[in-house]
Amino acid sequence: MGFEVSRRLSAADTVTLVNAVVGFVAGAVAFTDLHLAARLLLLSVITDALDGIVARGSQGSAVGPLLDSITDVVSFGATPSLFVYVLLTRYFGDITETGIAVGLAITLVASAYVVFSIVRTAFYETYIDSADGRPGMPNSLGAIVLSTAYLGGVRQPVVLAGAMLVFSVAMIAPFDYPKPGPRHVTPVGVVLAMAVLVPDALYRFGPRAVLVIALLFFLAGPRYYWAD
């Protein structure tokens, strides 16, 4: 019988796989151009939102939710970790310059986000069966903060790496985060697109606006969920 890929994949799954490609390219580009990598990471966030829109407008597939979770680990787990790794090695030097101890420390700090992202995804797929309960911060939120902070002018490696460590732990924190609905996603998506296309326009309005929104969601999301 085989996998019957063409029959079992939906249009939304195709968008999800495009997200994986964009996320992978962002991680690869990070080693040479962090500014472009940050823009691609935000483009991956937009693509991730699009697959949900496509899924609601057409018939999804049985494998769709799992594909989405795996892709999220690639785009919003591995790529932010690579981004942080490049930031830290550019600041402190790579393992050939800093020695094994410092190089190992940099690697552990940088890889924390992808490790916690994998743990959250695995636990979510295994233990969480309610659409209403979404414990832990979504890994896409940390990716948004990292990329918009960099595009908005926050370039200090230690500050960004420290923030990502906090977000890493937040992914397995015992707080439920809401899933933003269309009335919230649409206006934010417009500003997000501006951050991707013209990140330096209007004194970096796009990335800075998205950064403020993302940080407010990080701090107030759980409270919003309970109040709702």
Rank of each mutant, 00 (worst) to 15 (best):
residue 145 V to T: 07
residue 198 V to F: 08
residue 160 L to F: 08
residue 11 A to G: 02
residue 74 V to T: 13
residue 176 D to T: 10
residue 183 R to N: 11
residue 82 L to Q: 14
residue 21 V to I: 15
residue 64 G to C: 04
residue 224 Y to I: 10
residue 107 T to W: 15
residue 125 E to M: 14
residue 134 R to M: 02
residue 144 I to Q: 04
residue 133 G to P: 07
residue 75 S to N: 08
residue 203 Y to C: 10
residue 68 D to T: 02
residue 107 T to L: 14
residue 27 G to E: 12
residue 152 G to H: 01
residue 202 L to P: 02
residue 138 P to G: 10
residue 163 A to L: 14
residue 141 L to S: 06
residue 118 I to D: 04
residue 207 P to K: 08
residue 109 V to R: 04
residue 78 A to I: 06
residue 146 L to Q: 05
residue 189 G to H: 08
residue 129 D to H: 13
residue 29 V to N: 04
residue 64 G to R: 00
residue 149 A to G: 07
residue 118 I to M: 11
residue 28 A to Y: 14
residue 29 V to Q: 03
residue 225 Y to F: 14
residue 212 V to S: 04
residue 71 T to A: 12
residue 196 V to L: 01
residue 64 G to N: 03
residue 228 D to C: 09
residue 99 G to N: 15
residue 181 G to D: 11
residue 13 D to F: 00
residue 206 G to M: 05
residue 203 Y to T: 14
residue 45 V to Y: 08
residue 105 A to I: 07
residue 89 T to S: 07
residue 116 F to C: 04
residue 73 V to P: 06
residue 186 T to S: 11
residue 228 D to Q: 12
residue 116 F to E: 01
residue 194 M to W: 02
residue 133 G to K: 12
residue 162 G to M: 04
residue 131 A to S: 09
residue 175 F to C: 01
residue 145 V to H: 02
residue 23 G to H: 15
residue 154 V to H: 02
residue 158 V to Y: 09
residue 32 T to V: 13
residue 135 P to F: 06
residue 84 V to Q: 07
residue 173 A to M: 06
residue 146 L to K: 07
residue 13 D to A: 01
residue 193 A to L: 09
residue 107 T to Y: 15
residue 66 L to N: 13
residue 226 W to Q: 11
residue 184 H to G: 13
residue 70 I to E: 13
residue 77 G to R: 00
residue 14 T to E: 13
residue 157 P to V: 01
residue 90 R to H: 15
residue 104 L to Q: 15
residue 60 G to H: 04
residue 126 T to K: 14
residue 100 I to K: 09
residue 84 V to A: 08
residue 90 R to Y: 12
residue 104 L to T: 15
residue 92 F to M: 15
residue 159 V to P: 03
residue 7 R to G: 11
residue 123 F to P: 04
residue 131 A to P: 06
residue 44 S to R: 12
residue 102 V to Y: 07
residue 65 P to S: 09
residue 47 T to R: 08
residue 192 L to H: 00
residue 128 I to E: 10
residue 217 F to T: 02
residue 117 S to V: 12
residue 131 A to W: 01
residue 186 T to Q: 11
residue 72 D to Y: 08
residue 14 T to K: 11
residue 165 L to V: 06
residue 54 V to T: 04
residue 61 S to Q: 00
residue 18 V to N: 10
residue 150 Y to M: 05
residue 106 I to T: 04
